[in-house]
Amino acid sequence: MKKILLAVAVSSIAAGSASAATIYEKDGFTYKLNGDFQVQMRQAIGNDERAEVEYDDLELKNYVSYDLGNDLTAFGRLDFGFKKAAKDNERGSNLEEAYIGLKYNVVSFSFGKQNFASDKFGIEEAYELKTIGGDLFNDAGTDVNGDDTLRIDVELDNVYIVVSHEMDAGDDGEERIDGEYHDAFIAIDIADLTLAAAYQLNNPADSAESRDTYGVSASYDFGFMNLAADYSVIDVNNTDFETKQYNIAAVFGVASTTDVAVGMGNQDSDENGFEDITEWYANVTYKFPRARNVSVFAEVANSDLEKNGKEVDMGMLAGLRLKF
């Protein structure tokens, strides 16, 4: 699940929590600890799916920085995820991000295991999507963080630019990153309008085939609601086939504590025999007034996908989320 840009306006609803992420701060050294715990009761979209407890996020994020003077800061991040340990009964945690870098004024450079630039793309507002991904950058196989990634972030007042490069290093393991990835992302805020674009070029290892993925998105904050749409395309160079996906989503602030989101996504391909898939969802999120980073939520979703000639059943979930 990835919720980008559209949620900016939603996130502007300030949290009324005493919890500060900063644990220790002295002589230019800062240690911050964030956490994101989200557990759901979920019956996924499908045929004869069973209800189960799902762990969407169980993360601890550690951030340290040193102020080096003259607007220069050294920083490092180490994020641990525990959802696989909880769900699959694996021992220990999963290292989700591990990188280090330098920040000068508005520009930061980091390297290590981290998200690609295009990970910032997408507007969908679902808690879970089952039959399609959030956008085609998810489908490009980059949901797993790169572990040989160089990245530059430039954060200006109204413009955010990220470029990243995943080196073609020899990786082992089931979730290894295959080949090189070059990514770029830009978002521009013009008053209440946010425009964004992303591009990714993937050169798989030991293959002449390359793959281009690009996307554009727009969202507008009307005050009482936020409306957004995105469109992304994957073009595999040695074929004539393109895969396309669009998403539309709207978030309504029905009360100071309650947001309602509705949205849909459609994926289609030129590939012979591919039938387009449409998935829609509606969810409600209630943030507790005394601690708005604690929320309860519920969602229903459905898809026109057919499995074995039979339409899939509607999915639903309800859960609790704590962030600090």
């Binding site: 699940m1 990835k2 919720k3 980008i4 840009l5 949620a7 900016v8 939603v10 996130s11 502007s12 609803i13 300030a14 949290a15 009324g16 929590s17 005493a18 919890s19 500060a20 992420a21 900063t22 964030n34 994101d36 996020d57 994020k61 910032k120 955010y160 978002a187 708005r292 980073n293 962030k323 600090f324």
Partner: peptide
């Protein structure tokens, strides 16, 4: 003090005081 959820997405956003 002032606490706000900061981040470019709701998944990325964490409370910052």
């Amino acid at each position: 003090d002032c606490t706000a959820m900061l981040g470019r997405s709701s998944d990325d956003a964490f409370p910052k005081t």
